[in-house]
């Protein structure tokens, strides 16, 4: 208690200097790896000219951003991006936490190791491979779902890659299927950090399992949940290219429910080979993400200062 109040008043150099030294290597790395290249962001505002070097090209204002708004197609694309990300955020929090809590109830070390390894398998696969496997299930000619379920029942087959209605579900499913392993590991590491004392105290008070989860586990997970949520909000305009491009096999028919800002930009610039235009799109995404993070954090800070992430 005493140390805390003291720390607030004056700076203790004996502590501060070593802490700064500890930060040094990482900051140097961020400088080289992130901040120096960030000068490249200016490419978004330049008319590319390789003959003078791309970083010396003349500025052309917002010219590179125009293609984004030239067509009326951006609306549904933005809607898709936002809605999918919100869905991922909610399901991607609830599901891994549930599984992590359940996982924690398993006492056998062997079973724990088995489940953990296996559930992580999808996380290790690349999206390209995932897209082949999804196709193995959904193909109209040879897919399992058609061959073993739909055709025997109805005599017909479903052309999944031509039917929009299925895709919001398929994409959310594939995303969770792929990421649940890591999400579980992440929340589990926090659960492992919870002192057993809390649970023992709760048991002594006669708390049921539910109450232990409700009053011990979840509150302890709150900071991690908040952090993860704020971080995903920062990426709300971005999307996993593989998931939205490769998994639906870039099927045009599905664009209205599968296209996100990233795949839209990719398709639009396919024949342009213009890094200034793609850079413009990513700058716009980053700015929106940044503003949202600042706003979110400010709101959290207002509600409960302790939980603000910075």
């Amino acid at each position: 208690m005493k140390a805390k109040t003291m720390g607030k008043r004056r700076i203790r150099w004996k502590k501060v200097i070593p802490i700064y030294i500890m930060l040094l290597p990482a900051m140097l790395y961020f400088l080289i790896n992130n901040y120096l290249p960030m000068y490249g962001i200016t490419i978004a505002f330049r008319k590319l000219d390789y003959s003078v070097g791309i970083l010396n090209s003349p500025f052309n204002g917002l010219e590179n951003f125009k293609f984004l708004f030239a067509s009326g197609n951006l609306g549904p694309v933005v809607r898709n991006t936002l809605l999918y990300n919100i869905a991922f955020m909610i399901i991607g929090t609830v599901l891994p936490i549930t599984v992590a809590i359940l996982f924690n109830e398993i006492r056998s070390v062997l079973a724990q190791r088995f489940y953990q390894t296996v559930i992580l398998v999808p996380y290790l696969m690349s999206m390209v491979i995932v897209s082949y496997l999804v196709f193995a299930f959904l193909s109209a000619d040879t897919g399992f779902i058609n061959k073993s379920i739909v055709e025997p029942l109805t005599g017909n087959s479903i052309s999944f890659y031509q039917e929009k209605i299925f895709w919001p579900f398929i994409l959310v499913f594939v995303n969770e299927w792929k990421s649940i392993g890591f999400g579980m590991v992440l929340y589990m590491s926090t659960i492992l950090g919870i002192s057993t004392e809390y649970y023992e105290a709760a048991k002594v008070d006669g708390a049921t399992k539910w109450q232990q989860i409700r009053y011990v586990t979840l509150p302890q997970l709150k900071p991690t949940i908040i952090t993860m949520t704020v971080l995903s909000i920062s990426k709300i305009c971005a999307s996993d290219f593989g998931l939205f491009y490769q998994v639906p096999k870039n099927s045009g028919t599905l664009y209205s429910v599968t296209q996100t800002i990233d795949t839209y930009v990719y398709n639009a610039l396919m024949n342009q080979n213009n890094i200034a235009m793609s850079s413009a799109a990513s700058v716009l995404q980053a700015i929106i993400g940044f503003v949202l993070v600042i706003v979110c954090n400010a709101v959290i800070r207002k509600v409960s200062k302790e939980n603000a992430i910075f």
Binding site: K66, F67, A70, S71, N73, S159, Q162, S251, G252, T253, Y255, Y264, N267, A268, L269, M270, N271, Q272
Partner: peptide
């Protein structure tokens, strides 16, 4: 340039399905 980008986006959306009869 910008119009062509927009129109090509439309073509890529429809041509595969239409030209395979799907």
């Amino acid at each position: 340039t910008n119009q062509i980008i927009a129109v090509e986006a439309v073509v890529s959306e429809y041509s595969a399905a239409l030209e395979t009869g799907s």
